[in-house]
């Protein structure tokens, strides 16, 4: 079985895409979950501020999502561009 250079590069890009998105998904998942857990705690203490707290939670989660999106972008680059 002769493996050419192009094939080897594609194989590495595919494995790399899997690793990038797989490991990259760990952090945002935990971080966003923590933020939401704390938001529930805060709403439990002070239900009148539920709207403000939910908004803050979503903004915080959006920031925490960023590294997950970086991983997604890199994975897509590895799959379709390089």
């Amino acid at each position: 079985m002769a493996i050419e250079g192009v094939d080897l590069m594609k194989a590495a890009a595919f494995i790399g895409a899997g690793l990038a998105m797989g490991f990259g998904a760990i952090g945002p998942g935990v971080g966003e979950g923590y933020a939401a857990g704390k938001a529930c705690e805060a709403i439990g203490r002070n239900p009148e501020e539920a709207g403000l707290l939910t908004r803050t939670m979503l903004v915080g989660q959006a920031v925490s999502e960023s590294t997950g999106i970086y991983s997604l972008v890199i994975a897509l680059l590895l799959l379709f561009v390089v």
Partner: peptide, 12 residues
Amino acid sequence: CTGFGGIGPGIG
């Protein structure tokens, strides 16, 4: 990808 990607969201 699906395997490791599931760890964080599950804990979160």
